[in-house]
């Protein structure tokens, strides 16, 4: 009874654009699904697809971990420190969102490449060269995806009540313990949401990856790269690869959601 009454009150001004928005997001996907050559699916799914998929999942997950390690402290710095010029820093953090990913890849090459500002020393001193390696893929994906995490966590931190941190201090907790045991758990939904966005962005990342890490099967060819190259010669294969990537990512996110994000309902 109650539910029906509430539903009846939903204003059309909101519902119609909402449905249009949903259609806008889903119809292109539907197009992909409809065009999928289901019958030839098994022949198109070779070992290379499995390899690319595995690489994609591993790299996106590692990139997310890297983003968590660097992004949460950065979000904390932006949200809680009295650092001067925080507004400017916050704007800078979003640069990778605005930058065309290919440009991001070039920027990474200029810094971390074999002849890059830092990369040349890494190469000379430690023999480490990131381009054309799986580590390079992780770096490129993390570069592009980190803003999602930072923005999400920073928003959660700014919304969190800092008095809980004071309460922890009066209970004898050091700043670090307070951060770990009080602040972080209280912004966990924001961290999870940010990590999910970050992971999804990393999984779909193409431009920065191929520019910085190149494309070599088994090393740096992730699913989006495989999709792009398949598109050059065999659009059907590209559609199949896209569907596989789509299904796996939706599956993983749905699984995570059930497990980690308990909604308010």
């Amino acid at each position: 009874m109650t539910r029906n009454r509430v539903r009846g009150r939903l204003p059309a001004v909101l519902v119609l654009p909402a449905l249009a928005g949903l259609a806008f997001l889903l119809v292109p996907l539907a197009g992909l699904v409809i065009k999928t050559p289901w019958t030839s699916l098994p022949t198109l799914l070779g070992a290379e697809v499995g390899e690319a998929l595995r690489l994609s999942l591993i790299c996106a997950s590692l990139a997310t971990v890297l983003c968590l390690f660097l992004g949460i402290p950065l979000a904390w710095l932006l949200a809680r420190s009295g650092l001067p010029g925080r507004g400017f820093l916050r704007a800078l953090v979003t640069v990778p969102l605005v930058l065309p990913p290919v440009v991001g890849g070039v920027a990474l090459l200029l810094i971390l490449g074999r002849r890059g500002l830092i990369g040349q020393h890494l190469d000379a001193w430690f023999g480490i060269s990131l381009p054309f390696t799986t580590a390079g893929v992780v770096v490129a994906e993390a570069f592009v995806a980190m803003p999602f995490l930072v923005i999400s966590v920073e928003g959660a931190l700014r919304a969190a009540d800092p008095r809980y941190e004071e309460a922890a201090a009066t209970l004898g907790a050091s700043k670090w313990l307070t951060f770990r045991r009080v602040t972080l758990p209280s912004v966990l939904p924001g961290v999870v949401a940010g990590a999910v966005l970050c992971w999804a962005r990393a999984l779909g990342e193409f431009g920065a990856t191929i520019t910085f890490a190149g494309n070599f099967p088994g090393e740096t060819t992730t699913m989006p790269l495989a999709v792009y190259l398949a598109l050059e010669t065999d659009p059907d294969a590209a559609i199949v690869l896209s569907i596989v990537l789509l299904l796996v990512s939706v599956g993983v996110l749905a699984g995570l959601r059930d497990r980690w994000i308990s909604g308010p309902t």
């Binding site: 201090a169 009066t170 045991r181």
Partner: peptide, 21 residues
């Protein structure tokens, strides 16, 4: 002496109990 070093106990107005514990 910062708060965490003082032998104090505080009961806050709205208690500020840690919600996840």
């Amino acid at each position: 002496l910062p708060a965490e070093k003082r032998p104090i106990g505080v009961v806050f107005q709205d208690y500020l109990l840690f919600a996840h514990m």
